[in-house]
Nucleic acid binder design. Structure first.
Lengths: 129, 129
DNA sequence: CTCTAATTGAGAATACATTATCATTAAGCA
DNA sequence: TGCTTAATGATAATGTATTCTCAATTAGAG
């Protein structure tokens, strides 16, 4: 019943720690395979589920995208997705001025919000002809 | 090759026109069945695809939700999802002050954004003990 | 070093949304 | 009214993400 530290599990967590933003299962798999070529997809699912149970990582859902995962942060933040390379980056600011508990004109009470910005990242903009 | 006006197709479009916000396929199916009990799910998919091809409705993707559809509006808007009943409502304002073309501190160029507010709708708040 | 059981890898199995198939129904033009 | 064929309903098939199975491996306690 005790958790064991394996090369696979540690590599997967390292991939998430070094990521520029939340990664999907297949992203994690591809990046972790650079260290462990034989890594199986099921192992990625299992490691991610364990990390989620331990509250070490969070699931991030973006519109129309498979679930992504990021190491837990303690600050409110949003994401930017590049429309060229589809990578998702973490943003460190929030331009939405709607505190939890705000009431809209129609009476709805707002408790939280999710914002995603879309555009072109530096790498893609530079690499374009 | 000509489109035909059927009771099913008209009912499905009416359901979308009368909706409080974007509906998922199963929502549309459930509401349209109130008028046509025998309505098949495949018919809903087909009608929605036709309406999408004709640009009469738009697909709305919310984080972690099945695709939803709403009649085409001509104004930029966002959505509110009630965390009790899971219904999605259209909002008529945008609190995000990031015009297309804005450049972030890290150099990323922002072209668009998606915002979803979450909270409790009027009906759910009133109906709670 | 040994032993137990957690972990892994590969592929089968599952879950679920969406599409395809096909016989039947019915819209709408002549 | 008749005819052509788009549309429908039921269900099988498909695609894709996720989980399960099981034999083999290996972390870590004793």
């Amino acid at each position: 019943m005790n958790r064991r530290n394996t090369r696979q599990g540690e590599t997967i967590l390292a991939v998430l720690r070094n990521a520029e933003g939340p990664l999907g299962i297949s992203d994690i798999h591809a990046r972790a395979k650079e260290n462990i070529a034989s890594l199986g997809l099921a192992t990625v699912y299992r490691a991610v589920n364990r990390l989620r149970n331990d509250n070490d990582i969070l699931e991030v859902e973006l519109p129309g995208e498979e679930a992504r995962y990021e190491v837990k942060r303690n600050h409110h933040h949003h994401h930017f997705q590049c429309q060229k390379c589809n990578k998702v980056f973490e943003l460190n600011f929030c331009p939405v001025q709607i505190p939890s508990g705000t009431r809209l004109a129609n009476g709805f009470q707002v408790l939280e919000h999710h914002l995603t910005l879309y555009g072109v990242c530096n790498v893609c903009e530079t690499s374009m002809a």
